[in-house]
Nucleic acid binder design. Structure first.
Lengths: 250, 250
DNA sequence: TTTGAAAGTGTCTAAAAGACAATTTGACAT
DNA sequence: ATGTCAAATTGTCTTTTAGACACTTTCAAA
């Protein structure tokens, strides 16, 4: 392969991106997985992370944004690299090999993947027709036990990175709609940290940070005391962090 | 390329590892860089991170350990992945292209690199003859302004990851000899965080963590009050963290 | 009007962080 | 022997943050 002859639309058969797309439905964290719709005798039809080969003339981040848009129709999304995964035996399940044969020109090529995680507002998700994904589904994190390739391992690392990142940057807002309640935010943090957080202490700290704008608007139609709605205050967040503040943990 | 015919010793021409090797000489943080010894008319002879192509049948972590041992002679070192770097224009300096021509079979191949950082005890460093590195030198972080390829960018990201990681895991001991003084540890943290830390508060916190063993042994031959020597207490560290404790920041 | 369900709120205590300066000790020079 | 230099060592007070803990409010629906 000679660099000068590469075209934008040439596939790089040796490098891919895989995306761990997190969503939140106010109850639990979910991950968008694809169903490859394989009919296999007795072996399981394992779900997979959305991902694909990159193009020759494409940066890794670009490729991740592209794959995300192709799959979800969402642009300008929060995206963070998890890392590179290159175990030579990443593809060691018979079902994975079968599947690659059906969709790849070079199904036996060694592929090193750059994994990303992204946080999306679940309601913005617009399922798109996707070449090789028979279905795309939101699966609760707690129900995921096995995935294709090394995707389960990638998911574990992505979860860990998310947990760490959210302690130093309030990225959780990317999982909530523009307007949200403190209870929803509270629940979100409990789901990410996988442990209960005291309601009053949580509210005290998040409000003290002064990065929420109270919209003076209430929830409607709920069969109990309606909640105040808030939105994330980007400007105050900038002010807060410009002197190095980075304690957003609970 | 067909997977089944890959051999352990085949080079993968499209994927490399690059290593940011941090050291500490009790004064400042240094990085091990190679000098490619190029004679170039007017353009600078830029230094580079040590790195190389990986083998076809080699995991990325393995490759990083191998490259480190080949270069420094050190095994069983602290190693952490920084991430994948795959800008299609990573190689955009004429001097880098020239150099690749001289050492690679496929000098124009697009290479995606997995970057790692490692922390080494500077005195354990045993310079090794290294195929294409004319010299390997410890350069102070503060003096590094430009590097080959995208290595300067990689270095910045590695520094950032190190700063974050050391707040949740006391990996700094990997940069110090077995026996060290509290002042040396204090200076190390100041260098990593690039800001002064109050001596008394630093000592109070690190001692309270109870992960240091006082060796009841003093520095010798210093023209001032000799300091107590300590070593890292692995067992106490395990005890401390097994309940999720992760606040090692200052 | 009653009931159910979640929202909203305050205080006390304990632990941690941050600011701050004087004394001690050994090596070396005189 | 004495003095000097340079770095090590040590403690207190104040402020901030974390953690534990329970009752009242508000709306919708029965």
């Amino acid at each position: 392969m000679v660099g000068n002859t590469r075209k934008k639309t040439d596939l790089n058969p040796n490098n891919s991106v895989d995306c761990v797309i997190f969503g939140f439905d106010f109850e639990q964290i979910k991950v968008l997985l694809i169903d490859r719709g394989q009919n296999l005798g007795n072996s399981k039809n394992l779900r997979a992370l959305p991902g694909n080969l990159i193009y020759e003339e494409e940066d890794l981040d670009e490729a991740a944004y592209r794959v995300l848009e192709e799959l979800t129709g969402i642009k300008d999304i929060y995206l963070e690299q998890v890392g590179a995964f290159g175990n030579p035996n990443r593809v060691n399940k018979e079902s994975d090999r079968e599947w690659l044969k059906s969709i790849r020109d070079e199904p036996n090529a060694r592929v090193i993947t750059a994994a990303y995680y992204s946080l999306v507002k679940i309601d913005d998700f617009v399922p798109k027709a996707h070449s090789f994904a028979k279905k795309a589904e939101w699966i609760p994190l707690t129900e995921i036990e096995e995935l294709a390739f090394d995707h389960f391992e990638i998911l574990q690392v992505a979860k860990e990175k998310l947990k760490q990142k959210i302690k130093i940057q309030p990225i959780g807002f990317n999982l909530l709609p523009e307007k949200f309640t403190l209870s929803q935010l509270h629940k979100l943090y409990e789901c990410i940290f996988e442990k209960p957080l005291d309601k009053r202490n949580f509210r005290r700290k998040i409000q003290k940070l002064n990065i929420l704008t109270n919209l003076k608007e209430k929830q409607r139609g709920v069969p109990h005391k309606p909640s105040q709605l808030y939105k994330f205050n980007e400007e105050n967040y900038q002010l807060l962090t410009q002197n190095g503040y980075d304690n957003f943990g609970f």
